[in-house]
Design a protein around this nucleic acid. Structure first.
Lengths: 197, 197
DNA sequence: CTTATCTCGTATATTCCCGTACGAGATAGG
DNA sequence: CCTATCTCGTACGGGAATATACGAGATAAG
């Protein structure tokens, strides 16, 4: 997969890496970030960027692919077996920022990339989280009164919110993981019993 | 406040109302909605719009003010006394669409309006929800292990997500209220006891 | 009815961003 | 050292959106 084109110089490789990194950074914060701004943030000229990415859509797609691949890798590295609650904690601890970033980039891609292409790229990522949720339901650890798709989406939104608050400096890096975990766990938890209503 | 300028014709008043309504509608769905599109949706010519709102920022601010005022009115009409959980349910039932809309418009205003102006306008709205959360904590109904500001924000994000899912047709109007209530309640609820970990 | 106000079209200026063209200079790689 | 590749500046054209200018016609309000 990395050797699609055998002939490419090392500095070009480096430029591409810096550009996609900058694109991930800027686009996840502002979906309308300028190509100029991305090139500048990457430390390359605008024309260099155009040399590697013909169009804006190409750049967005590259950034999206990069973050989704990173997400897949992380997901694959995390042990999702055993108790669903603990698996979820492990997953969140190691990847909540990444997931939040992917959600933001997904929003960026909306309207720029054809819908089919997005679903194709995003494909597996969400499904595996959904699987974890379903497994948790089978174990009796997670709630069953709300649709799985909704729960997965809520997790996305919570992570997105946490990332934003964190960037704004309203929650400290040290606290972020704990806050995210506590919030998500209580959304997914099966109601042990309802003393009221 | 409604009589800032005593001399204005009735049809102008009507035009302004239609324009702000259209602006609320379009901007809450697409932050980059064109002035043309808003004028057309309002059923007025583009030049008529410019006659009332000098600049795009003026229009955005007007829409934001309108929805925040509506939110304040709704908030004031809801009985926030008694059991905090029930008060929260009442609040969500009667205003979740409105709050979601205000959040979307707030995102629209980001970057168009100066940050100080936004905080100034938004001011009271969030505070009163925060008060409700604090009251629930004093009653022992709501959790105390997470910051109040974070909890308020999570409510916002959940509502925002619900609105989006609803628009996309992935959750039915009839179910929306129940889903929102169940989700938010479980985020805010004090952990009755932790059978695990 | 008369006037001040409002509506709204056309035309135009401005700004911003995307994307292309051309070409000179730097550098990796053999 | 030599060449293919990469970097990157300037310049240009196209398109979209904001905002202004001018002016003719409709209408509310006294």
């Amino acid at each position: 997969m990395t050797s699609t084109r055998p002939r490419r110089r090392a500095d070009a490789e480096r430029s591409i890496a810096r550009i996609t990194a900058a694109a991930r950074d800027l686009l996840s914060r502002d979906p309308d970030a300028t190509i100029d701004a991305i090139a500048e943030a990457a430390g390359v000229g605008r024309m260099t960027l155009y040399g590697h990415f013909k169009t804006r859509a190409d750049l967005v797609e590259a950034a999206l692919v990069a973050v989704l691949e990173a997400g897949e890798a992380t997901l694959a590295a995390v042990d999702l077996g055993g108790d669903a609650r603990e698996a979820l904690s492990r997953l969140l601890a190691s990847s909540w920022e990444l997931v939040a970033e992917s959600a933001a980039l997904l929003a960026s891609a909306q309207g720029v990339l054809p819908a089919g292409r997005i679903r194709e790229l995003h494909g597996g990522a969400g499904d595996r989280v959904a699987d974890l949720v379903r497994r948790g339901r089978d174990q009796g650890a997670f709630r069953t009164d709300l649709p799985v798709e909704w729960l997965v989406n809520v997790v996305q939104y919570v992570l997105h919110g946490a990332a934003e608050e964190h960037r704004a400096g309203r929650i400290a890096t040290a606290d972020a993981a704990r806050i995210v975990d506590a919030t998500v766990q209580s959304v997914l938890a099966a109601p042990s019993h309802n003393p009221h209503t």
